[in-house]
């Protein structure tokens, strides 16, 4: 099934008859330029007084960059969807990990045993 779809994909590529999807050169260049622009934006945003929103802006831009790299440079957009599903499930587990630890971090009482706090 997937082989059929990929075979028709290959038909549209002039020079290529092998396996996998070939990313057109303009797409690679466009993705790279988008990544550079996002880098400039995130550096510029770091000079703005955004207060508490700063981390969300920075992480939002980083996530957009990561999505571009994953979708195009890592071929996930054109690949067998199984790889993308694995990747997304992994990120869900990372979110669980970070989320639960952060929920717990505020519960910690460093003054419970005097002078024995690991993080002061």
């Amino acid at each position: 099934m997937t082989t059929d779809i990929q075979a028709t994909h290959h038909g549209s590529q002039d020079e290529h008859h092998g396996i996998g999807h070939v990313i057109p050169a303009p797409v690679l260049i466009a993705v790279f330029l988008a990544l550079i622009v996002l880098t400039v934006i995130t550096v510029a945003a770091s000079y703005l007084p955004l207060g508490e929103f700063e981390i969300w802006v920075a992480m939002g831009i980083a996530t957009a960059k990561a999505a571009l790299v994953a979708a195009y440079f890592m071929h996930l957009r054109y690949d067998n969807p199984l790889n993308a599903i694995l990747f997304i499930f992994c990120l869900l587990f990372v979110a669980l990990f970070v989320g639960f630890v952060l929920m717990d971090a505020d519960q910690y009482r460093s003054d419970l045993i005097e002078m024995h706090s690991p993080m002061n």
Partner: peptide, 8 residues
């Protein structure tokens, strides 16, 4: 990069 260098 943003977590270490940019966030204030």
């Amino acid at each position: 990069f943003p977590l270490l260098y940019l966030i204030q």
